[in-house]
Design a protein around this nucleic acid. Structure first.
Length: 813
RNA sequence: GCCGGGAUGGCGGAAUCGGUAGACGCAAUGGAUUCAAAACCCAUCGCCGCAAGGCAUGAGAGUUCGAGUCUCUCUCCCGGCACCA
């Protein structure tokens, strides 16, 4: 390695200089420049930075630096999402205080983040577990409570037996805990929920206004899961049971009713039916096991003697309970149409229930009128194939609606049976209470009657007690705190009790980007005027794993705050970029068990932070969430690139910049800017490399040209660029120098290179003065023998000439 | 199963509007240098072919003077949802 490039000395010196010049502190009130809020997801302080952290922060930093050079007032803040399970687990395992563990890690991560040369504004640092921050998490929770958006209710919830806490729906992946991978259990518990479902429609329509990648928007749409349909009422004696259906047009084909085993109507049934329900529940395995089982064989039990009336046909139909009906979706009950729904058909075949088709394909024409035979043949085909008849057609066996298109008749049928239009969402309310210690205490106390009350603002922050036994028991650790109980009695009186659960850490991170604007504010969670100026966030860079968690929660929070005039915007983030994943050298995801985990520190030590930054920028497009294998030789290659730059700069001479070189600089400058705007740092680096190749082959290297080159290099390799800036005898820091811009005319080249084709196949290339006519081009092209020969043999039919691009001779033999 | 995104050399990738496919880098090969090696430097580097030339962007068709790019059919890979009525 080139000893002239001592990256250790260069990097520490540059960092000292930036610190001294106070370069990355943003004046939020500055009126002279355009504000640009560049946000990157704040990290959990796990203690060791891996390559993923580098990829997240170092590459986003390139853009922050580039925008500053281009004259923007860039807010590029950092903080720590510092509540969470690892701290508590460390406490249980090693007996350390979770707070000490967390703050020690934060200290370490600060050093590491600085070692990347990341230009974060540390003066605006936010730490989620600090009382000065969680005071406002609590205050916002009380605001949501006042709006009726926070609710203490009993519900069937997911429980992680390993972490000994409940989880939000979003935190269950394939039936397992998102954190630890343990299979989750289902429990009925009274928990705190934030009513995100009230915002389902707005979360959905809001997506249409956002310029996000389609895959991110689609994932959120699927998670919200909107279905338009109708609620129809079925009578069971005097008892009415509502069902939700997207196919009310098939109601004449309903042959039985199914309720979820936990359906509330079951409580009003005779004792012998309740026994049937209990027996069924006991027989079936726990719900999660059922959900995960490969074998999706349907189970169910008929409620003996219980009959419902089909509101369309007025016929009696049997009533079943079955767990293929989900209690928490729709109304928890369905009307079963085995002829037109695969799941109902499976169930009907198993329990030998009638199958009654009511829609036939329109092509069948007159045959549809002959319905006894048609019904029989369609029923037969369902039984044979096990596949229901889906899709649209003509109704039959549907009373006065027979003969009509099912789509057209659908809402008339709803009216006829006294139903109403309904929309259902797959999204469930966000379960935010956790039976864990290291989280934000829920700012709630219960009066002697057990009614919840918010803790008044003068008692916020509602401090996390320290006299707590962390050992997980399934009970909230805060329940062991004497201090907390005494505090509640002291402030609220005898018989009042604390809430012992803490908040999901996703609540902490749902609003942190507001806090960066006013970190020291003791009177407000943010600052009105600055929020108006800086929000929404211009660009948010993060990981795709947060698409249906953090990104959804933060949108919900912002909308809820907007509705009570606490946020000036409804959508928090304009642009969103999900970065890709850095894989191990073997192309697999890095994991300790595979032994393919790379420690970035080794590479930084050996090749320097700049080489690692440039490598990560160059590895692939940052705007596409692909998987990029870490190439061990790749970093060395980038080191070589930087060394070549050092050598070239040594050759600088005080000569004039030729027009040709000026054009090349101009082209590189526009290219790098526009690639940066699209987060395509790979091609931006390539533009720098092309420029370097140009310098290397030039007989003389003008000092002004390399000066501009160093400016363009600065966002990518900030430390080296700073050192070279000094070598060039420039004043101040390269990072306050303006981005080089050139006369736009330079982007037009004087000569154009035109490809010559015969029938679309390339036969040669000609160089023409710019603005040459078609005749000039043809004349020039005919000098190429291959063209001449081809044209002599064939009849010229037409000529296509696209100036500066292509000249195509179209011939006929 | 449904929805979304993809597929380009040995590898990562480039081609911004339908106009010279393979930029830039890695790896590889040959040379130069060296006592020797590493590093550095020069050259080659999609496939077939001595060459002329032909064939090439997952497969097949289509539109077009011209298709990696547009349309249709299919295959495979990645991601999301999944007993959501």
């Amino acid at each position: 390695m080139n000893r002239a490039y001592d990256h250790r000395a260069i990097e520490s010196k540059a960092r000292e200089k930036w610190e001294y010049l106070n370069l990355s502190v943003t004046d939020l009130s500055d009126k002279t420049k355009d504000p640009y809020y560049l946000l990157v997801e704040f990290p959990y302080p796990s203690g060791d930075m891996h390559i993923g952290h580098w990829y997240a922060f170092a590459v986003t930093d390139i853009y922050a630096r580039m925008l500053r050079a281009r004259g923007k007032n860039v807010l590029f803040p950092i903080g720590f999402d510092a509540f969470g399970l690892p701290a508590e687990n460390a406490a249980i395992k090693h007996g350390v205080d979770p707070k000490d563990w967390t703050y020690k890690n934060i200290e370490r991560m600060r050093t590491q983040l600085k070692s990347m040369g990341a230009s974060f504004d540390w003066s605006k640092e936010v730490i989620a577990c600090d009382p000065s921050y969680y005071k406002w998490t609590q205050w916002l929770f009380t605001k949501l409570f006042e709006q009726g958006l926070a609710e203490h209710k009993e519900a069937s919830v997911k429980w992680c037996p390993k972490d000994q806490t409940v989880l939000a729906n979003e935190q269950v992946m394939d039936g397992c805990c998102e954190r630890c991978g343990t299979e989750v259990e289902e429990k009925t518990l009274t928990q705190w929920f934030l009513k995100i479902t009230q915002y389902a429609e707005r979360l959905l329509t809001g997506l249409n206004t956002l310029p996000w990648r389609e895959d991110i928007k689609e994932a959120q749409r699927a998670w919200i899961g909107k279905s338009d349909g109708a609620t129809l009422t079925f009578m069971i004696g005097d008892l009415s049971v509502d069902v939700f259906t997207t196919r009310p047009d098939t109601v004449f084909g309903v042959t039985y009713l199914v309720l979820a085993p936990e359906h509330s109507a079951l409580e009003n049934l005779p004792i012998e039916n309740k026994a049937e329900v209990d027996a069924y529940i006991a027989k079936t395995k726990t719900k999660t096991e059922r959900e995960r089982s490969e074998n999706k064989e349907k189970t169910g039990t008929q409620l003996s003697g219980v009959m419902a009336i089909n509101p369309a046909t007025k016929e009696e139909i049997p009533v079943y309970i079955a767990d293929y009906v989900i209690g928490s979706y729709g109304t928890g009950a369905i009307m079963a149409v085995p002829a037109h729904d695969d799941r109902d058909l499976q169930f009907a075949l198993k329990f030998n229930l009638p199958i009654c088709p009511v829609i036939a394909r329109a092509e069948l024409g007159k045959e549809i009128e002959d319905n006894p035979r048609l019904a029989e043949s369609l029923r037969e085909s369902c039984i044979q194939s096990g596949v229901a008849i889906v899709g649209d057609g003509i109704l039959f066996n549907s009373g006065e609606h027979s003969g009509r298109s099912n789509k057209v008749a659908m809402w008339d049928i709803v009216d006829a049976v006294g139903g109403k239009r309904t929309t259902s969402y797959r999204l469930r309310d966000w379960l935010v209470s956790r039976q864990r210690y290291w989280g934000c205490p829920i700012p709630i106390v219960y009066d002697p009657k057990g009614e919840p009350h918010t803790i008044p603002p003068e008692h916020l922050p509602w401090k996390l007690p320290t006299d707590v036994d962390f050992t997980p028991t399934g009970e909230s650790p805060l329940a062991s705190s004497v201090e907390l109980r005494e505090r509640v009695t002291r402030i609220f009186g005898d018989g009042w009790t604390p809430e012992y659960d803490t908040l999901d850490t996703f609540v902490d991170s749902s609003w942190y980007f507001n806090r960066y604007l006013s970190t020291d504010n003791e009177h407000s969670f943010s600052d009105d005027a600055l929020m108006k100026k800086w929000l929404p966030v211009n660009r948010y860079s993060g990981g795709s794993e947060h698409t249906n968690m953090h990104l959804l929660y933060a949108r919900f929070f912002t909308m809820a705050l907007y509705d009570i005039a606490l946020s000036p915007v409804e959508e928090p983030f304009i642009e969103r970029f999900n970065r890709g994943l850095i894989m191990g050298p073997d192309g697999h995801k890095m994991s300790k068990s595979k032994g393919n985990v790379l420690n970035p520190d080794e590479f930084v030590e050996k090749y320097g932070a700049d080489a690692v930054r440039v490598y990560l920028a160059f590895i692939g497009p940052y705007n596409e969430p692909g998987n990029y294998p870490w190439n061990l030789d790749g970093v060395a290659g980038m080191r070589k690139f930087l060394e070549r730059i050092v050598s070239v700069i040594e050759r600088k001479e005080d000569v004039e910049v030729s027009e040709d070189l000026m054009r090349k600089l101009a082209r590189a400058s526009t290219r790098i800017s526009s690639d940066g705007d699209r987060f395509k740092f790979n091609t931006a680096v390539s533009a720098l490399m092309i420029l370097l190749n140009e310098f290397e082959s030039a007989p003389k290297i003008p000092i002004l040209a390399v000066r501009d080159f160093v400016c363009m290099l600065a966002p990518f390799a900030p430390h080296l660029a700073e050192a070279l800036w000094e070598t060039l005898g420039q004043e101040g820091s390269v990072h306050v120098a303006e981005w080089p811009v050139y006369d736009p005319d330079l982007l037009q080249s004087a000569v154009s290179v035109v490809a010559v084709q015969v029938n679309g196949k390339r036969r040669g290339v000609i160089e023409l003065p710019k603005d040459s006519s078609e005749d000039d081009a043809i004349l020039e092209a005919k000098k190429i023998s291959a063209i001449e020969n081809a044209l002599n043999e064939q009849v010229l039919e037409r000529v296509i000439y696209v100036p500066e691009r292509i000249l195509n001779f179209v011939t006929r033999p």
